[in-house]
Design a protein around this nucleic acid. Structure first.
Length: 794
DNA sequence: GTAGGGTTAG
């Protein structure tokens, strides 16, 4: 270096040197502080040399690098009598995004001789990518098109990046398509941005297209496409990329190797990941993190800790990602104490309580069903990431706290935090559990508005939501539109038909699935059995059960046995059901006996009911719902002393209050909830007078209230009321008076619909000529013209 | 102008 101290500048020799441009340039690039630069500039001017365009450009560059405020840069620029395009571009690149764009907008007035080129627009476009609003970027895009730069790969890349930063995937693709000869960087920008927007399928498609068109790919390309393959667990695609990498020699680039380690770990190929990791001479922090998380997520917590120790011993400090990878999210129960101790370590160190670490802990606590701890971690996060919102929402949905999940999603919308596929998938699951069709439709609308990629997860969640919220046709429409279906999608659709009592449709779809060579899983058979059971298809169900073990080698679990007992029991084959239980290899669980008890209920089989109840009391002494069932069976047979005794036992054992039966109906986006005998509704006078009129007409048509008949597992409080004012009847009547004649009525009951309401609804559907869809605790009933879709197999 | 690891889902 020419000089070390500012005092050196005062020497005459330096003055002479400064007259020569190259020395001057060297001095500028060597300056290490703003003060140095000031002194150089002052000296130059004193020595009679005014900086020319080249030196000013250099100076501007250096000033920006050393953190000079934007006002200084602008002042320097305006001191130049006739700035050229190069200087303008350097200025634009050096200014903070908003000042750069502001400056550009005044350019035409201030410097009419300067015609922006592709660099100008590229820098400007990349400035728009980091703003809070997309509006300036869109305006710039318009100018780019007018000025004819939309076909330039440099500009296109910056614009593509801009749109992807604002999650406008389609717009980004449009920009890309407008560039006839995309270069490697432009391809990479699109692929990487798609991955960041969770559009993994699209990114793989673009990569394929890139390779097919013969475009040159580089290590960045491979590094950005690998996470997409890993995320989708597309091992074959990943291995193809590996082959491409080997052939081109790019597979040994450190970023790419890390990508492979992560890919193989995520696909469960730990030996391959381990092999690659051990091939690296000196793995860096990121490679170690990939391996740590790979082991941990595959349940190999010991090996994960080994690599962590190695990292501490030889490669220095771990970072927050190391911690995230180390937490055994995949098996929290097994390593609960380890997770909690990592958490307290993280809190103590303070350094690690950033968003990804907190998100991992949120997840762990959700999995441990410790929702309060999870929420505490979530609330303590100053900056919430997409993943942290998703972790909390899915945690609520999976723990059945559906309202919490939905209200958190609402909060996100209110805060203008844009959801991604995972957010909507979790929220849809909550809507499905709740049976909230209007909410579900709203989420569907948001998916469309946000242009979220419709991947298998999202579409399957939509099928599930529509099916569980009563729109089986809409579910089927989405199912048919799916290009790529997997087992879960088929399962969701089959289960949907089962819920709606369309057993034959379910079986037809199951056959189609087998023809399409999709290997069924235990869940598939559970859905098929369920559909048979709710459609009264006993023989078909039996055949499916045997085919499961014989043809597909799937060992039936307790839930399959329970479903079979339910199937036989509903159809009145109680003896066969009991015989079937005796074939259960291990002792039958509560599910199996519960199913038998439910069947006894329907067929008023007191002695068998007693047997089943005794088994249940033995297996689950704390579960109170069986007492209700048994007592109802006795009262159905008019054996009131026994009924009273059971009820007394029940009262003794009961600790928690019962959930009262209630029915929900949505009218024009508003939710109305009715309980039995409810008079709290503002229109309750009208509702009751309508109900009276309707009951009159029903009686005329032959309806008799079945007050002394056993009510399913309805609760005591509800039973004490006249069945006439059951919550479902109130909700139906409210539906009748609040909607157009002829339109369908949908209600949701939290318990199983009672026999009397079931019969009454049939009459109502005929008298009013309405389709009434009732979702109860176990299935859907479509009442139409005096009949129910369940064919009374409910 | 693009760049590897970590969190979230049916």
């Amino acid at each position: 270096m020419l000089w070390r101290s500012p005092s050196y500048l005062s020497s005459a020799a330096t003055s002479l040197c400064l007259r020569r441009r190259s020395f001057y340039l060297d001095l500028i690039s060597g300056a290490s502080t703003l003060r140095h630069l000031d002194q150089i500039l002052a000296h130059a001017i004193l020595s009679g040399r005014h900086p020319d365009l080249v030196t000013t450009t250099k100076l501007l560059h250096r000033l920006a690098d050393l953190g000079s405020p934007p006002t200084h840069l602008l002042r320097l620029f305006s001191s130049v009598p006739r700035p050229d395009l190069f200087l303008l571009n350097v200025l634009l690149r050096s200014l903070p995004p908003s000042s750069a764009l502001l400056f550009l907008s005044s350019l035409r007035r201030a410097h009419p001789h300067l015609r922006p080129d592709s660099f100008t627009y590229a820098f400007a476009a990349s400035a728009t990518a980091s703003l809070l609003s997309p509006a300036p970027g869109r305006a710039l895009h318009a100018r780019v098109i007018i000025d004819g730069f939309a076909t330039d790969p440099f500009v296109g890349s910056a614009l593509t990046d801009f749109y992807l930063n604002f999650s406008q995937v389609s717009a980004a693709e449009k920009v890309f398509d407008g560039v006839p000869d995309p270069d490697t960087v432009l391809w990479n920008t699109l692929i990487s941005g798609l991955v960041q927007n969770c559009a993994f399928l699209r990114s793989l498609r673009v990569f394929k297209q890139m390779v097919m068109t013969g475009a040159r790919f580089d290590s960045t390309t491979l590094a950005v496409v690998l996470p997409a393959a890993a995320e989708l667990q597309e091992l074959i695609v990943g291995m193809t990329v590996h082959c491409l990498g080997m052939k081109s020699g790019l597979a040994f680039h450190s970023h790419v190797v890390t990508g492979f380690i992560s890919l193989y770990s995520k696909c469960g190929e730990i030996p391959a990941a381990k092999f690659l990791f051990e091939q690296i001479d000196e793995p860096d922090l990121i490679a170690c993190n990939a391996m740590i998380s790979g082991y941990s997520s595959n349940g190999l917590v010991g090996s994960s800790v080994d690599v962590f120790r190695e990292l501490l011993a030889f490669r220095g400090r771990p970072n927050s990602s190391t911690m995230v990878g180390l937490i055994p999210v995949s098996s929290p129960f097994e390593h609960e104490s380890l997770s909690r101790s990592i958490h307290s370590f993280a809190i103590k160190s303070g350094l690690y309580l950033n968003s990804p670490v907190s998100t991992a802990f949120t997840t762990v606590y959700c999995r441990l069903n410790d929702m309060e701890a999870a929420r505490k971690v979530f609330d303590a996060m100053p900056e919430k990431s997409m993943a942290s919102w998703n972790a909390m929402i899915s945690g609520y949905a999976q723990n059945g706290l559906t309202e919490m999940a939905i209200s958190l999603f609402r909060e996100m919308q209110d805060l203008n935090v844009r959801p991604n596929q995972i957010t909507v998938t979790s929220t849809l699951s909550a809507c499905a559990q709740l049976g909230a069709l209007t909410l579900g439709k709203w989420v569907h609308q948001i998916i469309t508005q946000e242009d979220l990629e419709l991947n298998v997860y999202v579409l399957t969640a939509l099928i599930d939501m529509y099916a569980k919220c009563g729109s089986i046709m809409e579910a089927r429409r989405i199912f048919d539109g799916m290009v790529e279906k997997n087992v879960v999608s088929w399962n969701a659709m089959i289960l949907g038909y089962g819920l709606h009592g369309q057993g034959l449709e379910a079986l037809k779809l199951f056959k189609e699935m087998l023809n399409a060579r999709i290997a069924p899983t235990g869940v598939t058979f559970l859905s098929v059995l369920y559909a048979c059971s709710h459609g009264g298809l006993v023989e078909e169900g039996r055949a499916a059960f045997w085919s499961m073990t014989c043809d597909h080698g799937i060992k039936p679990g307790p839930e399959h046995y329970a479903c079979m007992v339910d199937l036989l029991g509903r159809a009145g084959q109680l003896k066969e059901a009991l015989e079937f239980i005796e074939t259960v290899p291990e002792s039958a669980g509560p599910g199996v006996w519960g199913a038998l008890l439910g069947a006894c209920m329907k067929h008023k089989e007191t002695s068998l009911a007693r047997l089943a109840s005794e088994k249940l009391f033995e297996l689950e002494p704390e579960n109170t719902s069986y007492y209700v069932l048994l007592s109802n069976i006795y009262s159905a047979n008019r054996n009131y002393p026994e009924a009273a005794m059971v009820r007394q036992q029940d009262a003794k054992s009961r600790k928690l209050p019962k959930t009262p039966g209630c029915t929900l109906i949505e009218i024009r986006d508003e939710v109305h909830i009715f309980t039995s005998g409810d008079r709290s509704h503002p229109q309750s006078v009208l509702i009751y007078s309508m109900l009276d009129k309707l009951t009159g007409k029903m009686v005329e048509a032959g309806y008799r209230a079945e007050t002394d008949v056993a009510l399913y597992d309805v609760e005591e409080e509800e039973k004490e009321h006249m069945v006439k004012v059951h919550s479902e009847k109130l909700a139906i009547v409210f539906g009748l008076i609040s909607t157009e004649p002829g339109s369908e009525i949908r209600i949701i009951k939290n318990l199983r619909v009672c026999l009397d309401c079931h019969a009454a609804t049939k009459f109502i559907s005929r008298i009013t000529q309405r389709l009434i869809i009732v979702r109860d605790a176990t299935r859907f009933h479509h009442f139409k013209d005096g009949a129910c879709s369940c064919g009374d197999f409910w």
